[in-house]
């Protein structure tokens, strides 16, 4: 094993990390907002809204992400109206195309997760809140949404990790994130296995860190699931 090569490969791939994280976090953030909107449309009980959300989710979940990226990056330029619109400076850049495609894609998957979370909120909780005199919006903001987020968090954590993996596809439209740099390094050195090990380890470290953060968030959000401290300990704290 050639450790100096591993080290130099690591140093060559490291500059791709910020771009990978940017692509992942910006698209997850935007996608989450869109996912919430889609989930609300889906549960709105208004037929046309429901159908729009269903169609969106179906279309984005049953076509490959790479096709979606190509449709946005290469495809939209086919129309002169797009090329002469105010959005063109943005749609011309692979960076924004990748973010738009990733965000639209994760929104479809995320909305199903959020929908599950929203539906898991017990009826009694919302009824109690209504009985306290909260308005519908207050009930949603104070009761339903927090409970739904808590319920959906583990599944959403998985989705975030899938998104980190999905950012690799941005390399196909010339973005030099970790996978893009890895592909370049492989074609320069012909040492695919070593570069793969280094790039793979970087992804594993990122994903491990994200799982830890999600676990911490989950722990923080579920005080009711933690073991109850023994009375003796509580008494001592009172004494202090």
């Amino acid at each position: 094993m050639d450790f100096s090569f591993f080290l130099s490969a690591f140093l060559r791939l490291l500059p791709g990390v910020p771009l990978t994280l940017q692509l992942a976090f910006i698209s997850v953030g935007l996608g989450m907002v869109l996912a919430l909107i889609l989930a609300l449309l889906r549960l709105s009980g208004i037929r046309p809204f429901e159908w729009i959300a269903r169609a969106y989710i179906f279309l984005f979940r049953s076509t490959p992400l790479l096709v979606q990226i190509f449709l946005i990056y290469y495809g939209l330029g086919q129309f002169p109206t797009v090329r002469y619109s105010v959005l063109w400076p943005m749609l011309r850049q692979p960076y924004w195309c990748a973010i738009i495609a990733l965000a639209l894609n994760t929104a479809a998957y995320g909305s199903e997760i959020i929908r599950g979370g929203l539906r898991s909120v017990p009826e009694g909780q919302t009824e109690a809140a209504r009985a306290c005199g909260m308005s519908r919006i207050t009930v949603f903001r104070r009761i339903v949404l927090p409970l739904a987020i808590r319920q959906a968090l583990p599944a959403y954590g998985n989705e975030i990790i899938l998104m980190v993996k999905a950012t690799a596809l941005a390399s196909v439209i010339t973005m030099m994130e970790i996978t893009g740099l890895a592909a370049k390094l492989i074609s320069e050195t012909y040492r695919a296995v070593e570069v793969f090990i280094v790039a793979g380890s970087i992804y594993l470290i990122i994903n491990y860190a994200i799982t830890r953060v999600i676990h911490l968030l989950e722990y923080w959000l579920t005080p009711h699931l933690r073991p109850v401290p023994t009375p003796g300990v509580v008494e001592r704290e009172d004494a202090v």
């Binding site: 993996k165 690799a168 390399s171 996978t179 592909a183 296995v193 793979g200 992804y203 491990y208």
Partner: peptide
Amino acid sequence: GIPDLLVIYLFYF
């Protein structure tokens, strides 16, 4: 935890 594209590159190259 690893992007599929990276695995494809590994096998192809």
